[in-house]
């Protein structure tokens, strides 16, 4: 069983939460659930409704699209993070390559949390804006 502080340690490594203060990550940690996946267990498939994201604590998750591997998520990596922010269906599938331990964040719980903690929303928006700026810089650069 992971303590709150240990969950925060995992969450602080996720890009989308990089601008959320460590103290506010405690609130996100409070809505995470431990999830165990056997080898070959499919977390979600392409076209599924996106209702949660996962953080890999231990093990490895293969992420693929149209049968082609996109990445392998290992300790501290997140899969399906953008599902928390829109209502689109999954564009990739995720399958456990070995026995894995994960933290699961439910989308509904997350949205409720954002409505209560505006500073978390601000932190996430800072990351998104930073990404947008880098994209715009990249586009504008000759």
């Amino acid at each position: 069983m992971l303590s709150t502080v240990e969950r925060v340690i995992f969450l602080q490594g996720i890009d989308i939460f990089s601008k959320v203060s460590s103290e506010d990550l405690v609130h996100i940690a409070a809505i995470t659930e431990l999830h165990e996946a056997e080898t070959g267990h499919q977390l979600y498939r392409e076209g599924d409704l996106a209702d949660c994201m996962y953080v890999v604590i231990d093990g490895a998750i293969r992420v693929e699209r149209g049968g082609e591997e996109v990445m392998v998520a290992k300790n501290g990596d997140a899969v399906g993070a953008w599902a928390l922010f829109d209502d689109e269906r999954r564009v990739v599938s995720a399958t456990a390559m070995e026995e894995s331990e994960l933290l699961r964040i439910d989308k509904e719980d997350f949205i409720d949390l954002l409505s209560d903690h505006v500073q978390i929303t601000q932190g996430i928006m800072k990351t998104i804006v930073k990404r947008l700026r880098s994209l715009m810089d990249a586009i504008q650069r000759p």
Partner: peptide
Amino acid sequence: NQARALLARALEE
């Protein structure tokens, strides 16, 4: 080290 890194981050904040 991870514990110390978290403490350092909290202190910086």
